Amino acid sequence: MSVLIVGGDQVESLKRQVIAQGHTHVEHWSGRKKGFLKRSLSSNTRLIVMVCDYVSHSLANSLKNKASRKGIPLIYCRHSAHELKHKLLNKEKIDEGCCHCYSF
């Protein structure tokens, strides 16, 4: 199962958390360039983790729409491995309003 992490520069701790939960492949998009808005999701992506503190509004909205069209769960978190671990263990899926996505 493939997981896409969007946002952040140093995401090694987040990758380790995702792999520890049994996901085999982790892809990372920094989200720093405009080209990420037009990038398509991989066909084997089963989960998207969005690091809210490092993602623009337009990229966040674009990914939310793409994920909902494909039925892919979307987890919002700050750059915290502990928070991500908690959300993965409890299988939380947050669709509406996220944890500080829109506060810059």
Rank of each mutant, 00 (worst) to 15 (best):
S13Y: 11
D95N: 14
K64M: 11
F36R: 08
G7W: 01
S30D: 05
I48T: 02
L4A: 00
S13N: 15
I94P: 09
E92W: 15
V49W: 05
I75S: 07
L88W: 11
K87E: 01
C52S: 13
R78V: 03
K91Q: 15
S43W: 07
H86V: 09
H79W: 08
R78A: 10
H79C: 04
Y54S: 07
H25R: 13
K66I: 06
A60N: 09
Q17P: 06
C101T: 07
L88S: 07
P73N: 10
K34M: 11
K70V: 00
T24G: 04
H79D: 11
L4Q: 02
Q10R: 02
S2Q: 11
S2W: 10
Y76E: 10
S68P: 11
H25N: 10
G97Y: 09
A20M: 04
G22E: 01
Y76K: 14
H25K: 15
C98Q: 11
K85C: 05
K15P: 03
I75T: 04
S80D: 03
Q17N: 13
L41T: 02
L88F: 09
E12T: 14
E27F: 14
V51D: 01
T24L: 11
H79P: 08
S62Y: 05
I19K: 10
I72V: 12
Y54Q: 03
G71K: 12
L63N: 03
F104P: 12
S2I: 12
N44T: 15
L41D: 00
L89C: 12
K64L: 12
N65S: 11
H57E: 08
H100G: 05
V18L: 03
L47W: 06
R32D: 06
N65G: 06
V51F: 05
A81V: 06
S13C: 05
K34E: 09
R46C: 09
E27S: 12
L14K: 07
S56N: 13
M50Q: 15
K33E: 07
V51W: 04
C99Y: 15
H100N: 09
K64S: 09
R32E: 03
